[in-house]
Design a protein around this nucleic acid. Structure first.
Lengths: 345, 345
DNA sequence: TTGTACGCGTTATCAT
DNA sequence: ATGATAACGCGTACAA
């Protein structure tokens, strides 16, 4: 294999000079630099990564942990989509910096992760927390690995990158009210998930700010599955005074809700409006195309990688929390109400 | 960070002795070994991976290239499933040997892959070739990377691990004939794919061995998509003398075929039998549950990793080709024909 | 059985 | 502007 010494010989200089050229450091005359570059090109030289890592005390490599990436999923959880978009974002940022990215699944033991750290195999970890067991987060924290979590973690001492669930839910209410709706219901996610709680809280705060009612029957439980959305919507349709708009806090439940309305012989948005959350790929192909909140997945991945680099390079002090805002994507599942002057009522 | 020297000090021995213990080499007294192990345990020592890689001249890490792992797919290609199963198999074998696995996508340039090799970042590559561009295989070959391809590659000089497409297709014919079928049609895949050609060839050879007819209308083109299976089956249903059984050389086309039969107001398997290939997860939930050939995806991944290690460690000389046999999974989409004594006719 | 010394390929420090 | 040298942490040939 070709080493820096071979290049030095070919260019008639010392190894130090070659190294200087490689890392574009000053102190090399233009002519020598040129000769060295030519030798590098001719010999197709590339520095040995292990030698660099040893010398620099950096692996120039990070790991991304995604949930169950290697295991077949049951149910309708399209986790793959979330993961790939986030990974892609982080991957591109890392590649730009010539960092290597290794995908790990979330099934490793504490010992496994700890040993990766002690072996200096990776400089840091990005954990994609869709609904990863929170214990994993805590374990990882104790390994000492520089860690960034993508998603909502209650622990304020871990670095995280998250979408603004609270604010986005508020935005949904503002939008629906702007369209003339007053009787707005919500289909919630699992309460143990922080993201669920935040979306619900944002919704309720804004509803209160508008002075709108929050009857208990309008506050439906759900578990993020299509089925639970279907069932929740069925319950809502049977309420004496049904809502005119329903906010399902994820798209899969919104899909279930759409189906329930259809099965009840009614129309979305004519009889009832529906808003989702996520903007999963099929959202635009639904009937009707779903108005929803777009999660900036790719950008979350990018932000996670940036935050990790900031931490590694001391530009930011842990714990840090980055929140990305989401945007409402208006499609056709919400109908403006004629009496839109409700605000002045 | 804790190094081998720290351990040596703690145990009151030299670094060489610690190293010997680490790599379980002979020449260490039981008591010393014990002391050393204890020190390792106490200090939570793990060898520095870069130092080891540099010394051993091995990265102890391999890369797996899968197609478009980071990009959303269009159409109904469930590539993710193939990939994850194969990756899982390879991953587990590698982890057992304490090798690290890095996932790469197939969008890298030649220069990118070549540089990984020159930097000694990975010891070898497994390329999951579902329908990867064959040029990538050729490019990778010229980088000098030890390479194993999972799938059917025409180039006899690349190491590969593949399912026995030819033999499996023969098995299907044998099975159908055993069930009393004589008029058997095939729905093919894209002819540029070696796997398609092999399955078709196996089918035809065995049909000829049984002395069964191979009319041209029984030899339908397809492109592996559900839609093409639907269309092919429609054509077959309109033949003056339709087949009693149809072999779709992948499951998605079989699904299309099932649907076509249903839409024509007929029944599978009462009016016509259908056999698929792959055993994708939904196959068992179809109506009727699909009789199909199970591709040993997980085992293919394992075999690929094993082959790669065999090559790296000189136990096998390139080019090597490993063929795994597939098994027929009998479910309910094939009906035994009453006149099953055809063999003695 | 155990220890000493060198080298893997690179980079940083110190001379020149 | 350039070169000699040491050091990163580990493994191994050789000496003791």
């Amino acid at each position: 294999m070709v080493t820096i010494t071979d290049v030095a010989k070919a260019a008639g200089v010392s190894r130090s000079t070659v190294s200087r050229v490689l890392n574009n450091r000053p102190g090399v005359s233009p002519e020598t630099r040129k000769r060295v570059l030519q030798a590098i090109e001719e010999l197709q030289y590339q520095p040995h990564f292990a030698a660099q890592a040893l010398k620099r005390q950096r692996a120039e490599s990070i790991a991304i942990i995604v949930q169950n990436s290697f295991r077949e999923k049951t149910g309708d959880e399209p986790r793959g989509y979330y993961n790939t978009e986030i990974v892609r974002g982080a991957f591109n940022v890392c590649t730009e910096r010539r960092y290597t990215v290794t995908l790990l699944n979330d099934e490793g033991t504490f010992e496994f992760y700890a040993s990766l750290f002690r072996r200096r195999q990776f400089d840091g970890i990005v954990l994609v927390h869709v609904d990863v067991d929170l214990r994993l987060v805590e374990e990882l924290k104790t390994t000492g690995f520089p860690l960034v979590v993508v998603g909502s973690v209650p622990d304020p001492f871990v670095n995280s990158v998250d979408v603004d669930n609270y604010g986005s839910a508020q935005q949904v209410v503002r939008y629906l009210v702007g369209q003339g709706h007053r009787r707005i219901a919500i289909i919630n996610g699992p309460p143990q998930r922080l993201a669920s709680r935040d979306r619900r809280a944002g919704f309720r705060t804004m509803m209160r700010q508008f002075g709108l009612p929050l009857p208990e029957v309008y506050d439906q439980p759900g578990d993020f599955s299509t089925r639970s959305g279907y069932e929740a919507m069925n319950r809502l349709l049977n309420v004496p005074e049904p809502p005119t708009a329903v906010f399902a806090i994820n798209d899969r439940m919104a899909i279930g809700a759409l189906r329930a309305v259809h099965d009840a012989g009614k129309q979305v948005p004519d009889d009832i409006s529906v808003v989702g959350f996520d903007d999963i790929p099929v959202a635009q192909y639904l009937n009707p195309p779903l108005t929803t909140v777009r999660q900036p997945l790719y950008e979350l991945g990018e932000a996670a990688a940036h935050l990790l680099f900031d931490i590694l390079e001391g530009r930011v002090s842990s714990p840090a929390r980055v929140v990305l805002s989401a945007s409402l994507v208006e499609r056709s599942s919400v109908k403006p109400l004629a009496t839109s002057s409700m605000l002045s009522e």
